[in-house]
Write a protein that binds this DNA or RNA. Structure first.
Lengths: 193, 193
DNA sequence: CGCGACGTTGATTTGCCTCAACGATTGTGG
DNA sequence: CCACAATCGTTGAGGCAAATCAACGTCGCG
């Protein structure tokens, strides 16, 4: 639990009372690589905080190919917002890419915290906004730059992820095939000589 | 002002007192086709409700090409969320595509309403969530379908817009050139015979 | 050990872009 | 009210970015 509070308190210090309340609503889990915290077709019941490890959220298209729309690692929160807030079936999956330690909270408990702890409310407001801005930038970037440029800015923006993720996952996030990412990488090492 | 309340009350009926409070914070404007309610580099100070007319929100890339990331018409709210909530400079523009009648509210006044009128709070929560889901679906769709499929689902999803917008604007939203959209349309009319 | 995920490479194909040209429509100033 | 410019939609030729398909070597793991 300590790590969660540490992250939190970098932005907003908490009283002991607040910590007790939060602890009472949140549950700790360890989960294995390749297991799912959300499966498409189900309602996203839990909002997940990642203490250690790393997840990907992805959708599967008509042809059966999966496309990563988001990664999340230590210190991040992840859920299918649409499904979580409206409690309707999700079209997305959230899968652990590594063994993970996580905290989870369900919708009623989170709503209770949001209403009763203004700091939690502010925290989640910021999280949502950042999420929104990030995905909006993705739309723009996908329109205006080549796969190589997108790959480079991915490396810049997520250095802690790029070294840990298999290239197939990165390719899926960039919206290209693994083969083509491999060719991009080859081109880049050439340029660096 | 009536239209705003009509939309609102389809979801949540308002008391007279609530209406008076909202009216006191919101201001009416008429604006001409091609004028901007947000210019990149500026902070997005106002959240805009559209009573009549239609807007596009777009970014401009390094090469000077603009890319539509969202349309908004009668009954919609529009703002650059990131800029509005954090009051930092926006990278986006919001332009009237037609002559428009709008209501606008600034950040402090909106915050006041969000805190004091639970119904307004719920309303904006729903608006934000829908917005988020919509843009998330765009990312997925752009990865998994051809321009033709995206065009078709645009026609389905926004029939009231597709008939009003010049094809150049639609092409920009789909992330393709107007020339190529023209070729798609030609292909489609052939198929329909 | 053997199997499955991963990364790489090459040959070929394709979806979409670029550039250039043209007619139709709109709108605007003189 | 007309003339001219600007915007829009369309078409065609050629080019490029990225996909597809197939093959192969490596590595970690049960």
């Amino acid at each position: 639990m300590q790590v969660l509070f540490k992250d939190f308190e970098e932005i907003l210090p908490l009283t002991d009372h607040e910590k007790v309340l939060i602890e009472s609503k949140i549950s700790f889990q360890k989960i294995k690589r390749k297991s799912l915290v959300l499966k498409e077709g189900k309602v996203c019941k839990l909002y997940t905080y990642i203490q250690s490890g790393c997840f990907r959220m992805y959708g599967i298209d008509d042809k059966g190919f999966s496309h990563n729309i988001q990664f999340a690692a230590e210190g991040d929160w992840i859920a299918d917002i649409g499904s979580f807030y409206t409690q309707t079936a999700s079209k997305l999956n959230i899968e652990a890419i590594e063994d993970c330690e996580i905290y989870q909270i369900n919708q009623p408990d989170l709503y209770w915290l949001l209403e009763n702890l203004p700091k939690v409310n502010r925290m989640f407001k910021v999280i949502s906004e950042n999420n929104f801005v990030e995905i909006q930038n993705r739309v723009l970037q996908n329109f205006s730059s080549t796969a190589e440029q997108r790959y480079l800015s991915f490396l810049e923006q997520y250095p802690h992820l790029s070294s840990r993720l298999p290239n197939t996952q990165i390719a899926s996030y960039l919206g290209i095939t693994p083969e083509f990412l491999s060719k991009i990488r080859k081109g880049l090492t050439k340029k660096r000589l």
